[in-house]
């Protein structure tokens, strides 16, 4: 059995294989982030397999890294991803969520990640997929589609005095606008390391071929947090000079949804839709063109 605080919520797991417990610790246990206990609990436990019922029309297939799995809405109370061999079932209640999983040896972990993320969304938090950097005032979130250059921009920022908050994922507490970094270091492809990260030593090669450097090797204690002050959408354009420029509101809306992902759970989706305009009223938005000249960081 394991139990640990998770951004003011409590994650509790019982009866899981050791591998699953280790996975939960590796991906979700960030003791660096201290939040008051909200009373919300996320329970993870073994389940018996998929239910026969469920509306696939209301919740279309979900593509997760490394797999595409059918998703079934279970009324307004949650959803189920997967099939007979592996999957998860998420049940959302007022002050907690229950996640039942099956097929622990068959690679359910992307689905489990999605379920825990959805439970956190249902509890009021918003995921922001992007890098976070801070220097002085508020945190700047660097948002972009995968492959645009978030991590290499992060490393370039670190070289000129910014501090890291996150490389790829932050959790946003919308009332306070606090973002919590959810990574343990930086991942770069070898060519990006050669171009942008000279001088940083201690890289390890990860399973996907990327190089990994923990925050500690970058001179920071671990994942950080801070108040979100600016959202910068990265755009790569080799024909133009690098620079900051205004971001049309509609582009900001698109970038935010791309960064947050679309919740499968209806209530979480409605909550996210309410938060997008509120966020855009309270946070500066801009575009950062990754072009010819050095970045104006």
């Amino acid at each position: 059995m394991i139990r640990f605080p998770l951004l003011g919520r409590t994650l509790h797991a019982d009866g899981l294989p050791a591998l699953a417990e280790a996975w939960l610790r590796a991906w979700w246990d960030f003791p660096e982030h201290h939040l008051p206990d909200s009373g919300y609990t996320i329970e993870v436990r073994p389940g018996g397999g998929p239910t026969a019922s469920g509306d696939t029309a209301a919740a279309p297939p979900v593509t997760l890294p490394g797999m595409e799995m059918p998703c079934r809405a279970l009324g307004d109370a949650g959803w189920e991803i997967g099939g007979p061999d592996a999957g998860v079932r998420l049940s959302i209640e007022g002050q907690g969520s229950r996640i039942e999983g099956w097929g622990w040896e068959a690679g359910i972990y992307p689905a489990l990640f999605a379920a825990i993320s959805e439970a956190l969304r249902a509890s009021g938090l918003i995921p922001l997929h992007g890098s976070g950097i801070v220097r002085g005032g508020g945190v700047t979130a660097l948002l972009a589609l995968s492959g645009t250059g978030k991590s290499s921009t992060l490393v370039q920022a670190l070289r000129v005095g910014w501090r890291p908050v996150a490389e790829d994922l932050m959790w946003l507490e919308p009332a306070s606008l606090t973002v919590y970094g959810w990574d343990r270091g930086v991942h770069l492809w070898p060519d990006a390391r050669a171009r942008f990260a000279g001088g940083f030593e201690g890289w390890e090669t990860a399973a996907d071929g990327k190089l990994f450097l923990p925050w500690e090797a970058l001179g920071t204690a671990g994942p950080a947090s801070g108040r979100l002050g600016r959202i910068a959408v990265l755009v790569r354009d080799a024909e133009r000079d690098s620079g900051w420029e205004p971001l049309p509101p509609r582009d900001a809306v698109r970038a935010l949804w791309e960064s947050m992902g679309v919740p499968l759970y209806t209530a979480a989706r409605a909550a996210a839709a309410r938060e997008v305009p509120r966020l855009l009223e309270r946070v500066e938005t801009c575009r950062l063109v990754l072009g010819r000249a050095p970045l104006p960081l």
Binding site: A57, P60, V253, R254, W257, A273, P277
Partner: peptide, 20 residues
């Protein structure tokens, strides 16, 4: 069901996540 609505400054923006 999958269409996302965002109210922005009096404008209603719809986003189809399947097509972007």
């Amino acid at each position: 069901a999958q269409v996302i609505e965002t109210e922005l400054g009096g404008e209603l923006i719809l986003l189809d996540p399947a097509t972007g």
